[in-house]
Amino acid sequence: MITTGDAAPDFTLIRDGGTEVTLSASWPLVLFFYPGDSTPTCTTEAQAFSATVAAFHAKGVKVMGVSRDTLAKHDRFVAKSGLTVPLLVDEDGSVCNAYGVWAEKTTFGKTYMGIVRTTFLIGRDGRILHRWEVARIKGHVDEVLAAVEAMG
């Protein structure tokens, strides 16, 4: 599991719209992993990051989301939900595995593999400054922004 102080695993993925993004070219960065496009909680989270992205950018920090959905699903999700943060395509799950967010989950007694909603703040040096496993979306983006502001 990747945690505070660890080097962020580097990767290159396709984002919504079809262009490539390389993690190491994007530091500092808020990287949030979410289970799936167009679900109520994931939509709320992505819209909350989109609504505050200017505040992150003002601090020199980019914001990107990652799920295992396809490029086509990301493009529809961005258009339908009015998102302004890039969504990265990790269809094979290699980045989810590298960050330790692909794990066994249980919902209503059913056990399955899925993305554990997790947010990472990656510093200018490519190290993890903060790691949040997100149980509640309400207040989460504000907490991440406060950590960014504390970076200086």
Rank of each mutant, 00 (worst) to 15 (best):
Thr12Met: 12
Leu29Gly: 00
Ile122Ser: 03
Val85Gly: 07
Lys59Trp: 06
Ile14Leu: 12
Asn97Gly: 15
Gly123Ser: 05
Gly123Asp: 12
Gly36Arg: 14
Lys59Ile: 05
His74Glu: 13
Val78Gln: 05
Phe120His: 01
Gly60Leu: 08
Glu91Phe: 10
Gly82Asp: 13
Asp92Glu: 04
Glu133Val: 05
Thr119Asn: 11
His57Trp: 09
Ala135Gln: 13
Ala48Gln: 15
Ala54Pro: 04
Ala8Glu: 02
Glu91Ala: 06
Trp132Asp: 07
Thr43Asp: 06
Val95Arg: 00
Phe49His: 04
Glu143Arg: 14
Ser24Lys: 02
Ala55Arg: 06
Val89Gln: 01
Met151Ser: 08
Thr111Leu: 06
Tyr99Lys: 04
Val85Phe: 13
Thr4Gln: 13
Thr111Pro: 00
Leu145His: 04
Ala79Cys: 10
His74Gln: 11
Val66Thr: 04
Gly152Asp: 15
Cys42Pro: 00
Ala7Gln: 12
Gly126Phe: 10
Pro86Thr: 09
Pro35Glu: 15
Arg15Asp: 11
Thr19Glu: 14
Val89Asp: 00
Met1Leu: 08
Asp92Asn: 14
Lys80Cys: 12
Ser94Leu: 08
Val141Phe: 01
Ser38His: 09
Met113Leu: 12
Gly139Met: 11
His140Phe: 01
Leu87Tyr: 04
Ala25Leu: 14
Lys80Thr: 09
Gly18Lys: 12
Asp10Cys: 14
Leu83Cys: 13
Met64Ile: 09
Gly60Gln: 04
Glu20Ile: 00
Ala146Gly: 10
Thr107Ser: 02
Glu149Ala: 11
Asp92Leu: 10
Phe11Ala: 05
Thr118Gln: 13
Thr4Gly: 09
Cys96Gly: 15
Gly93His: 08
Thr19Asp: 08
Asp10Tyr: 02
Thr19His: 07
Val21Glu: 12
Arg15Leu: 07
Phe77Thr: 01
Ala55Ile: 09
Val21Phe: 09
Leu145Arg: 07
Met113Asn: 13
Gly82Phe: 14
Arg68Met: 11
Cys42Gly: 15
Ala46Met: 05
Ala147Ile: 03
Lys138Trp: 05
Thr70His: 06
Gly60Asn: 13
Glu20Arg: 15
Ala146Lys: 10
Thr118Phe: 01
Ala51His: 11
Trp132Ile: 09
Thr111Trp: 05
Arg76Ile: 04
Gly100Ser: 09
Arg127Asp: 01
Ala147Gly: 06
Asp10Thr: 03
Thr22Phe: 07
Thr119Ile: 08
Glu143Asp: 15
Ser81Val: 01
Phe56Gln: 04
Val53Leu: 11
Thr39Ile: 05
Gly65Arg: 00
Gly139Asn: 09
Val66Ile: 14
Ala79Thr: 05
Ala8Ile: 07
Gly5His: 03
Thr119Phe: 07
Gln47Ala: 15
Tyr34Thr: 03
Val89Met: 02
Val63His: 02
Leu87Met: 12
Pro86Asp: 13
Arg127Val: 13
Ala147Val: 14
Ala146Ile: 11
Val53Gly: 04
Phe108Asn: 14
Ile115Lys: 01
Met151Trp: 07
Ala58Cys: 03
Gly18Asn: 09
Arg131Tyr: 07
Ala146Asp: 10
Val53Glu: 10
Ser81Leu: 03
His57Cys: 09
Ala79Pro: 03
Val116Phe: 12
Thr111Gln: 03
Leu87Pro: 06
Pro28Val: 03
Pro40Met: 10
